[in-house]
Amino acid sequence: MIRADQLASDARVAILNSIRAHLAESALHEHAAEDRKSERAAENQPTSIALASSGPDVARSPVETFREKLEMVGGHCVVVRDEAEAARSLSRILAELQTTPLRARRIALSDAPSVSRLIKAAEIEVDELTTSPNAADLFGYDVGVTTAQAAIAETGTLVLESESERHRLVSLLPPVHIAIIKAEDICLTLGDALRYVRRGGQPGMSRAITFITGPSRTADIELTLTIGVHGPQELYVIVCM
């Protein structure tokens, strides 16, 4: 162990020293060039980055933009007025799926209270409903139901924070993912969402944050777009006003 540790600290020191030595060499050789570079860096201080987002895309309501963008990448979006309507639309989605090869007989739920509430209200006929099944069992489920902590309108993206809910695997392993989100949690831009997730700095951040934009996809075989390679092949989002 001592040898490994010793080696490790050697490598650290060597790399940092190499970086410093080569930067110093550069400074010596390229005084003039360096000056130009740092001026340019100063001109472009990355502070005005927030402006970058305001395109024509976000002129309409965030919910409408979100729906449009999500549908563009192959996701489905339903906008509902309240929880009762959300429950009805959830049961409609599941009933429809039950007529397809996707079956939707075994449903995995995240541990969010609103998810259990909704599923109770939805009165659906399924073989199994389990909250947070363990990882090994999750491979056998047909549908995963979760909420999302935020969304990005301009890209149709869901934002999942690991410390708000147990949804890291429920949203990933079953072939269908249904997410429920409150309209007020939809951010306009990517920049807004990034600011939202890092609120309170590192101590406040979730250890795993996942951005989800549409179903899983690949074009690795002859550039043929194929939906649902490792992740879900269907993504439904119910937006609750």
Binding site: S206, I209, F211, I212
Partner: peptide
């Protein structure tokens, strides 16, 4: 793409 399907942001 405007965003790829997934971004994983992992902190420790």
């Amino acid at each position: 793409q405007h965003l790829t399907s997934y971004q994983s942001l992992i902190t420790g």
